[in-house]
């Protein structure tokens, strides 16, 4: 874990050096995120969550915090399991000046944790449990539509690692819609 923090720190330092003296821009987006997860029957099934991001951008660099969650229920009325998955991430986006397909390509790095909240109902009695935090990290690349400021429309492909999820890494996708003010 220490090695991991050092890496993140060096990443942030390299970013700071590159910052220009531009006025910071606030960034806020919302959009669907898709991940894959293996169920008990060993099928890898897609999971969709809604991701919210809030950040600040300096020229090519955008620092953001992101949260996402999804819920699912399984079982019958006598044995019901409700699962809520929550993601809390921080990340950095480096955006290129190069225009490709009327878009700006970008690279993204993220790090944070996830947790799960489980409500188990057995013959009418419900018990609530929360997991310990599981480390999550990932890298992504994508395209943001250029020259439509202040509107942000981007699509991103992600490789997400987690100490808990299966498969790890999992390939995911994220569509962001929002504003860069």
């Amino acid at each position: 874990m220490i090695k991991f923090f050092v890496l993140i720190l060096s990443f942030v330092c390299s970013v700071s050096q590159a910052q220009q003296e531009n006025t910071p821009q606030v960034f806020a987006t919302v959009g669907p995120e898709f991940r894959s997860e293996r169920n008990a029957e060993q099928n890898v099934a897609p999971k969709q969550m809604t991701s919210l991001s809030l950040g600040v951008g300096y020229s090519h660099w955008i620092y953001f915090l992101e949260t996402g969650s999804f819920e699912e229920t399984s079982g019958n009325s006598s044995l019901l399991v409700k699962r809520k998955f929550e993601n809390y991430l921080g990340g950095v986006i480096f955006e290129s000046e190069t225009i490709f397909l009327k878009s700006k390509p970008f690279l993204a790095g993220l790090f944070g944790f996830s947790r799960e909240l489980i409500d188990t109902t057995v013959t009418g009695q419900t018990t609530n449990d929360v997991s310990r935090p599981y480390w999550v990290g990932g890298a992504g690349t994508g395209l943001r539509l250029a020259n439509i400021n202040p509107i942000w429309v981007s699509i991103e492909v992600r490789l997400v690692f987690s100490e808990h999820q299966d498969p790890s890494p999992s390939v995911g996708g994220l569509l962001r819609l929002g504003l860069l003010l």
């Binding site: 169920n39 019958n76 044995l79 399991v81 699962r83 489980i118």
Partner: peptide, 8 residues
């Protein structure tokens, strides 16, 4: 704690 009914 199992996170789905089948696992439980």
């Amino acid at each position: 704690i199992a996170t789905d009914s089948f696992s439980l």
